[in-house]
Amino acid sequence: MDHDLDAHLADAAAAIVAAVDLDEVRALDAELLGRRSVISTAKKRLGGLEADERRDAGRRLNEVRAELERLLDGRRTELESDERVHRLESERLDLTELDRGRRLGHRHVVTRTWEHLEDLFVGMGYTVVEGPEIEDEWHNFGALNFPLGHPARDMYDTLYVDYGESMSTLLRTHTSPVQIRVMETTGPPIYSVMPGRVFRSDTADATHMPVFHQIEGLVVDRDTTFGDLAGTIQAFTAAYFGADFESRLRPSYFPFTEPSAEFDIRRPDGSWLELGGCGMVHPEVLRACGLDPEEWQGFAFGFGLDRLALMRHGIDDLRELFRNDHRFLSQF
């Protein structure tokens, strides 16, 4: 009997190793361990044996059964692993052939600069205010201390539109009318910036466009000083350009500010670049907005936004921003 069991175990082990898939393992499992298996049959016969013999034979049978289970489990694990490997192999992909360069859309460089500046001034405690691009003569000039027929209006090559009375409605030449609207409607204290699209009667070239963008700032409070203006310009310069950029104010003239200044930034190479205009809000402008200049005072500043975009990205022609060539747009 021992000999038979040994032979059975050897045959079974060979069959298990030879099993090629899990179905065969399952069939072998039934054949070797099921009710009609050699083991089960032998177990049934144990009852007819003497106690001693039965104990030895029983132990032996259990050992064989355990061995068969171990072999079957081992083969099953092997085959399952093969199957996983096979399945993964059959699903192999060349990922490089899948990369079709799907892109996120590209924000226009003017928008990038616009939003960057908004974020920066919001961080400095400012709100962002907007206004109409088609303006009336009062908000664009009159309230800003440009009397009718004043030669200073010639500094702006204004485009007028056919709306209302002749010369009453225009394409705003700066975002300053938004300052007026803020002072008229909100009242002080005001800490706001006004980004926006502006217009001049200019022929397009590398540095001029009939349409471009500006951002202005307005602060009106009880004791806002010229020193505050200079400090704010410097804080902005360091925040936007970097701590190694310096700023300075130079005397200038605008009808709507006094004292007026132009502000320059000094690049790390030592060269100065004129960036924009600024000054203390003119008492006449405050008065035009219904504010008492003895009670309220403040500063305003403004500069071109497109040029900052050009500088940041090393673009040498302003027209490129508005040509909308996809080879340009998709670079940023």
């Binding site: 908004e118 001034f121 919001v122 961080g123 400095m124 405690g125 400012y126 709100t127 962002v128 204290p189 800490y191 602060v219 409070d221 806002t224 000083t225 010229f226 020193g227 505050d228 200079a230 400090g231 704010t232 410097q234 804080a235 300075r248 104010l249 130079r250 005397p251 006094e258 004292p259 007026s260 200044a261």
Partner: peptide, 27 residues
């Protein structure tokens, strides 16, 4: 006053940054 600032020198006026008592935010 502008003349005073100009001749005194814009660069000689101490720079300060006003503290907005307001909260900066996009609307």
């Amino acid at each position: 006053i502008e003349e005073v600032a100009r001749v005194h020198g814009y660069g000689r006026i101490a720079r300060t940054v006003p503290r907005s008592g307001l909260t900066g935010a996009l609307n």
